[in-house]
Structures are given as structure tokens and as C-alpha cells.
Computed example of a mutant assay.
Amino acid sequence: MKSVLVLALCATALAPAMAQDATAQEWAPSEPVTIVVPWAAGGSTDTVTRVVAEELSEALGQTFVVLNQPGASGSVGTRSVWEAPHDGMMIAAGAAIDLGTYPVLGTLDVPLEDWRLYLHVAQPSLISVSADSDWEDFNDLLEDLQDGGDAITVGSAGLTSATAVSMQAIESAADIDYKQVVYDGGNPAVTSTVAGETQMTAQTAVEQVDMIRAGRLRPLAVMAQQPLELEGYGTIPAITDFLPDAAVAPNYFGLFVPADAPEEVLSSLDQIWEEQISNSEALKTFASERGSLFSPSYGEEAVEAAMPYLSINAWQQYEGGAAPNDPSEFGIPRP
């Protein structure tokens, strides 16, 4: 991001640059701004969005209110933002993979290019089981997933959730049998495994860390190419230690604003991301404590960062028959 800004300053005179800075400060919302979290309270999107809302409230001197609106794997809440006036007063939150996959699934006919992305953290998924489970490591679980007996039940937040994508990645690398049990969000999906309603989950680390530290969940693998050092627990091995061909990439979360929102809204958010979110101690602490990667970006840089995991998800959905539309029609390359 810094190199882009330097080039921009070199290419323009000082006065226009000062005018651009002034424009970035023009957005002064006169009433609270709503951030729609399209999942139940307590999940990965909800918890980090509340941290970001506080940062935005401080930056703009106006309250940013988080509204939970779950349904249809996140598309209901996101649709409500798209169908509202594109004036910056309603902003969507979520995972970039969901936003980009909605058109492929046919649940929301709005391509990624019609949104401006503001990302903050990447959240890896963990393959976890109840602490009193007989599965001691991922190899033990994998054997039972492959044995052709009763399908293992998996607590999931829905079609494009972290669990769904993770299980499809494992399925692509190994012949397994399982049954997803869908809940209204990541938090109830994780709770289902703790309570014994389901036998495992693959939701994000942020949704599991409290139960892991409390000794209620046992993490067997992280959906990444490197192990995860989880504060207060220890090392969780990478899924590629067991399945080298498993498709993994960072799962980025953020805020999404219609790209045709007023220029003063977008330029203000650009500047806030550049100057404040990228240096946010609150978000850095959140990432450190919740097993996340602090990696803010916005605009085209954000799209580039999110695309690897988005590509994995969109093509898995399409080739698995869950999505009717070809991802390439929406500019999503095959991973």
C-alpha cells in the first residue's frame, strides 16, 4: 500500500494531493452507521467486526452499530445491505470467500467487482473434536472418515462456511464420508461439537479458542501449510502434514461497501484503513489472542489477497454440483 501512495504523490502536484486528503475527511455521518453481520452473534465474523466497529466509531466520531442478520449462508444479511441505499450508512461484514461465491451459488447476483473490500484479519479453520473423543490426532479421525461406516457428523455454519470449505478440501484430497449439520453461525456449530450433538467441527480458530483453552475441544489440525501456535494451548499441526495435496489459503474477513457509494465515503474509509486500521493495536491483540493473522488491506490489494481462498471455495462448490454458475464467468480463476 505504501508504494502505491508514494507513486501517487510523485505523479501529482502538492495542491491536488492536499485536496485529496481534504476529500477523505468529508464523510461525517450524521447518525449511527449499521454494520450487518450476516451470521449469529458470537461467531468469527461477529467478534472481529465488533472490534472494527469500535475503531471506526473513534475514527469518524459516530457510532457504528453491529446488527446480526443470519440466513441462507450469509446471503440474507448481505442482500439487505445491497438493497439499501448505497450511501455508506449500511455496510456488510463477513468473509471475502462468501461475498465472491454468492453469484456462483446464485444466492446474491452481485459480483465481487461491485463491492469495495476492506479486509482486516485472516482466520484459519481448525479441525477439532470434543475433548472426550477417542480421536487423539488427525490420522485417527481420517481413518474413521474413510472407513465407510456411519457418516461422521460435522457442526457447520452452512454452504460456504469455514467448515464446508475445509471438509471439501479434505474430501478432494482423500475419500471420506461425513454429514454436515448446519447451524445459524459458527458459534452454535462449535457449541454443537462441545455438547456432543456433532462429532467434529472445522470452524475458524477464533470461534474455537475459548473452548480449546477451557479443555472442551481438542484441535487436531489447522487448515494451513504451517502449524498454528495458539496462545494458551500450544502447537496445532498443519493439515498438509497429513494430506499434502489439501487445498489451503488464508481466509480473509472484512467490511464490504457497494463500490458506487459516494466518493467521500470510500475515500474516508480508504484513509482510515491506511492510517488507523493498519496500525490498530486492538486488532493486533485480537489476532494474537484468537489465532488469527493481522493483515489489513483494501481495494484491489484486498481482492488480490482474498482471491486464492475464494477460488478454492467457488470452484469446489461448482465442481461439486452445489453451485450452478461457472466461477470463470465472474472473473474467479481456477485455483
Rank of each mutant, 00 (worst) to 15 (best):
M1V: 08
M1E: 13
A8N: 04
L9F: 07
A11R: 08
A15Y: 12
P16V: 00
M18S: 05
A22F: 03
E26Q: 15
A28Q: 12
E31I: 08
T34Q: 09
I35K: 08
A41I: 04
G42A: 09
G43A: 10
E55C: 00
L60F: 13
Q62D: 04
F64P: 13
V66T: 05
G71T: 09
A72L: 05
S73F: 14
V76N: 07
T78H: 13
G88Q: 06
M89Y: 13
M90S: 13
A92W: 00
G94V: 10
A96M: 07
L99M: 12
G100H: 08
T101Y: 05
T107Q: 15
D109F: 04
D114M: 09
D114I: 01
L117V: 07
V121R: 00
A122G: 06
S125Y: 09
L126C: 02
V129P: 03
V129Y: 04
D132P: 07
D134K: 15
D134F: 14
D137K: 02
N139I: 02
L141R: 00
L142W: 02
E143D: 15
D144I: 01
L145T: 12
G158L: 06
S161E: 07
S161N: 10
A162R: 02
A164P: 05
V165N: 06
S166Q: 12
M167I: 10
I170R: 07
E171A: 14
S172I: 00
D175K: 13
I176K: 10
Y178H: 12
V181N: 09
G185K: 06
N187L: 14
N187I: 08
A189R: 10
A189I: 04
T191W: 11
V194C: 03
A202F: 08
Q208P: 11
V209S: 06
M211V: 01
I212V: 15
G215R: 09
L217T: 06
Q225E: 15
L228E: 01
L230V: 14
T235L: 02
I239D: 14
V248Y: 05
V248P: 04
Y252N: 03
G254A: 04
G254P: 01
L269P: 01
D270H: 11
Q276A: 00
E281G: 03
T285A: 14
E289A: 02
R290E: 08
S292N: 05
L293W: 06
S295D: 15
S295W: 00
P296E: 08
Y298T: 12
G299P: 14
V303Y: 07
E304S: 07
E304V: 13
M307H: 12
L310Q: 15
N313I: 01
W315H: 13
W315K: 07
Y318V: 10
A323R: 02
A323M: 01
D326N: 14
G331Y: 13
P333N: 08
P335D: 06
